[in-house]
């Protein structure tokens, strides 16, 4: 197969980027998209040019490292798959393919197609954990969790933190990621004691990072390689509202008592 690639090239966060075009030949349909880029890079290196930098690691759709907006779609045209799981058989011979990085102010470009997703880590730092000291846990079966709840928590926990939801959202909103993270823990009894603080702090951090607001386009859900449901966003909104109401109540009671 033959392709014409338009690839975003950018030296670093400070310089402006540009598209460069490459033609590539001899690709087979069972090659993965990233293996196609490997071939391109091999060729660029051979020609004495700098290869295209792109993020990837596990190449099996679980680490969440790979990114790439392929022909206008984060992770490319295949539903429920990451870029590393995308195969060239999804494209037609001779097609022109445009490859861009995730584009969001909160994901600055580091080089070419590589972006900095540290903002996601900071959202977790704000409250995406259960405070349990190592060794202080009760027996794992001491707190039963209804199967439906555990399954639903798992549905949310399946998020790989890739950022495709942000990339796909017309507002570059991180609501799907944050919702998945908040709901995973808030659904479980183990996460209940901190649920209010968790949701308030995580949302506050999400906003501070400069992600946009959700206007319910649902592009995130469609782009998510793990099929995280946008229903979690509604639940996040509810969690936040109740958390704020409850914390108001609590501070009122505290000042009344004090």
């Amino acid at each position: 197969m033959k392709f014409k690639l338009n690839v975003w090239r950018q030296d670093n966060a400070k310089t402006a980027g540009r598209f460069e075009s490459y033609s590539i030949d001899g690709i087979t349909s069972d090659q993965s998209f990233l293996e196609m880029l490997d071939v391109l890079n091999e060729k660029l290196v051979g020609d004495g040019k700098e290869p295209v930098a792109f993020d990837h690691d596990c190449r099996e759709g679980i680490c969440g490292m790979c990114s790439l907006v392929v022909n206008g779609r984060p992770h490319g045209p295949q539903e429920h798959a990451t870029t590393c799981q995308l195969h060239m058989r999804k494209f037609t011979d001779g097609e022109e393919i445009t490859i861009e990085p995730w584009r969001a102010g909160a994901f600055p470009v580091i080089r070419d197609l590589v972006v900095d997703r540290g903002s996601f880590d900071r959202i977790i730092q704000a409250g995406g954990y259960i405070s349990v000291r190592t060794g202080a846990a009760p027996d794992a079966n001491a707190i039963p969790v209804a199967k439906e709840i555990a399954d639903r928590a798992m549905d949310a926990a399946a998020c790989i933190g890739c950022g495709a939801c942000v990339a796909a959202c017309p507002n570059a909103s991180a609501m799907l990621f944050t919702a998945a993270k908040v709901r995973h823990l808030n659904l479980l009894p183990q996460g209940a004691p901190e649920r209010d603080l968790r949701v308030m702090k995580m949302v506050e951090q999400m906003d501070a990072e400069g992600f946009g607001a959700c206007t319910n386009h649902l592009e995130c859900e469609a782009a998510c390689p793990k099929g995280i449901s946008a229903d979690f966003i509604g639940e996040l909104n509810r969690d936040l509202a109740t958390a704020i109401l409850r914390s108001r109540e609590a501070s009122k009671n505290a000042s009344a008592g004090g």
Binding site: N6, W8, G17, F19, V69, N71, G72, R73, T98, E100, R103, A104, G105, A106, P170, N171, A172, S173, G210, F211, G212, A213, T215, N216, H217, L218, E219, E221, A222, A223
Partner: peptide, 26 residues
């Protein structure tokens, strides 16, 4: 909100395909 949302993506995509949203939402 519109201001924040515009600021959240300072560099626009050259190619962007929307698959879930619709005209009304956009």
């Amino acid at each position: 909100l519109v201001r924040m949302n515009r600021a959240a993506r300072p560099v626009a995509y050259a190619v962007k395909k929307d698959v879930a949203t619709d005209y009304a939402a956009k």
